[in-house]
Simulated assay, not measured.
Amino acid sequence: MKKILVTGATGQLGSELKVLSTSYSKYDWIFADRTKATLDDLELLNSQLSEIKPDIIFNCGAYTAVDKAESERDLAFKINHLAVELIAKYAAKNNVKLIHISTDYVFDGSSSTALREDAGTKPINVYGESKLAGEIACLKENPKAIIIRTSWVYSKFGNNFVKTMKRLMQEREEINVVNDQIGSPTYAADLAQVMIDIVESSKWISGIYNYSNEGEISWYEFALTIKELGQYKCEVGGIPSSSYPTPAKRPSFSLLDKTKIKSIYNLEVPDYKESLKKIFI
């Protein structure tokens, strides 16, 4: 029985993989939280990997506090760069299949067309820099690895935009949401299924892939869709990013082109609205 190690098991993606794992009992699933796969302690992480001896690694663990990363640069790089490098090295040495999750934040947001995997990277915040360093290290140490860049992840689990909006729209009469950052959301359950589909596929074609749901929207439009589906009465206003300053800059445009993953793995990517409906069931 092949063993799949999932790092970041209590996060959004890890939690969705746990739900799906019950339908894939032919694998021995190891869901590792921070105590079982300690990404901020490299020596310990190395011994944990040697003890677990996985056949496949889904590296979903990451430092994701985008604003906090501006003041915790070393920690962000340790988890998003050095731990990824170590995992990639281990996977290469032990012939382990590795799927590593990355982000649209590796881009600077200056594009006006959907970004392909070979588009130039230029992060504008520490989180993006640390994730890009992780990508580079991953493919350098392990050219057979698969990296999936994703964006605007949400789920029934963890903290995310959808859950925050649902709460605020029930608590307040009026909220404002930025309307000048464009991209597409990703339902973590959809991405989790894609990761399993890749492993189940007869093809393993290494390199970088993009994945998010279909649609080109702003956070404001995303909020309006949440309002519509939840039938909330709250008034939603659109504001520019300049009216909502944050410690870390966000890319103003990070729509991902999914052509590569769709054609190679013959995937149907759901529209963002169709996936979002599942959160309201």
Rank of each mutant, 00 (worst) to 15 (best):
W29G: 03
W29D: 06
I30V: 15
I30G: 09
A32D: 03
D33A: 12
D33R: 12
D33P: 06
D33Y: 09
R34G: 03
T35R: 14
K36S: 07
T38C: 05
D40K: 05
D40N: 11
D40P: 00
D41M: 06
D41K: 13
L42S: 01
E43Y: 12
L44R: 12
L45D: 09
L45S: 07
L45N: 13
N46D: 14
S47N: 13
I52E: 11
P54F: 00
D55F: 05
D55Q: 06
I57M: 06
I57S: 02
N59Q: 06
N59M: 00
G61N: 10
A62L: 08
A62K: 05
Y63T: 11
T64Y: 08
T64V: 14
V66R: 03
D67P: 08
D67I: 07
K68I: 06
A69V: 02
S71H: 12
S71E: 13
E72A: 04
E72W: 01
R73H: 04
D74W: 08
I79A: 04
N80Y: 01
H81S: 15
H81T: 13
H81V: 01
L82G: 02
A83W: 07
E85T: 06
E85M: 08
I87A: 03
K89M: 02
K93L: 04
K97H: 07
L98S: 03
L98G: 09
I99N: 15
S102E: 07
T103G: 13
Y105C: 11
Y105I: 03
V106D: 02
F107E: 00
F107D: 00
F107W: 00
D108K: 00
G109I: 04
G109A: 11
S112E: 14
S112F: 13
L115F: 08
L115S: 02
D118C: 05
P123A: 08
P123S: 10
Y127R: 07
G128N: 05
E129W: 05
K131Y: 09
A133Y: 03
G134L: 08
G134Q: 10
C138V: 12
K140Y: 06
K140F: 05
E141N: 14
N142E: 10
P143R: 10
K144A: 15
W152E: 02
Y154A: 01
N160T: 01
V162H: 06
V162T: 15
K163P: 12
K163V: 08
